[in-house]
């Protein structure tokens, strides 16, 4: 049973971003707050996957949105504003990673700012394991997983954002899911078995 509320579909969200981009182009910089509220969560988690550090990810998102505020027509005139934003954030994340290479402890998710609903508290550890496992993936694979599952994009759309072919996106997704499956099967089943043995 799927107990998660489905996020807005990609097309709907993309349309909302397009509307926000149009408002930004018409009203100017003052209306950037609408775009921030709409996209910051998604952009930050995408950038966090790339940079493996939420502070760097927020810097990348900030740089992107400040650039968009300075030249709002660029976002408004492009074919798919949401894909354009994701691509900008990806480029900014790459820049930050080049400038500030961080030595991240493997499996360390201390930098993450989290929130967990009361009915999902039992899954909090699972979520942390998933984030740890995602950080162990190569960036090329983890970004495909993010775009596929969190942004609900098709492989063709992912290919457009990442500038790769749809087949490459699909194969990266396949390998990423396989790795995640292995890692999470080990990590998530172990505490459960331990608990059963303890009982």
């Amino acid at each position: 049973m799927n107990q998660f509320t489905p996020p807005p579909s990609g097309a709907t969200f993309s349309q909302r971003v397009r509307t926000s981009a149009r408002q930004l182009a018409e009203l100017g910089e003052d209306s950037i707050s609408g775009l921030i509220d709409l996209t910051s969560l998604r952009l930050v988690r995408f950038a966090t996957t790339l940079t493996r550090n939420q502070h760097d990810a927020e810097d990348a998102v900030q740089a992107t949105l400040v650039k968009i505020a300075a030249q709002p027509k660029r976002l408004h005139q492009c074919t798919d504003p949401w894909a354009y934003l994701l691509r900008m954030v990806r480029n900014e994340s790459m820049l930050i990673m080049r400038r500030r290479p961080r030595w991240n402890l493997i499996g360390d998710v201390c930098d993450l700012l989290t929130r967990c609903r009361v009915d999902e508290l039992e899954r909090e550890e699972s979520y942390r394991e998933i984030w740890r496992a995602m950080r162990k993936l190569p960036t090329q694979q983890s970004e495909v997983v993010v775009l596929k599952i969190w942004e609900e994009m098709t492989f063709a759309e992912i290919a457009g954002v990442l500038d790769i072919s749809p087949s490459t996106a699909a194969s990266r997704y396949r390998y990423a899911i396989a790795k995640l499956n292995c890692q999470l099967r080990e990590n998530l089943s172990q505490p459960h078995e331990d608990l059963q043995q303890h009982v």
Binding site: F4, S33, L41, V44, L113, R115, Y127, L184
Partner: peptide, 19 residues
């Protein structure tokens, strides 16, 4: 697995000061 990953996407939030 996909549901778990999807749920983990909502687990992270941007910082309060970002906006």
């Amino acid at each position: 697995l996909e549901e778990l990953i999807r749920g983990a996407g909502r687990y992270v939030r941007p910082g309060d000061q970002l906006r």
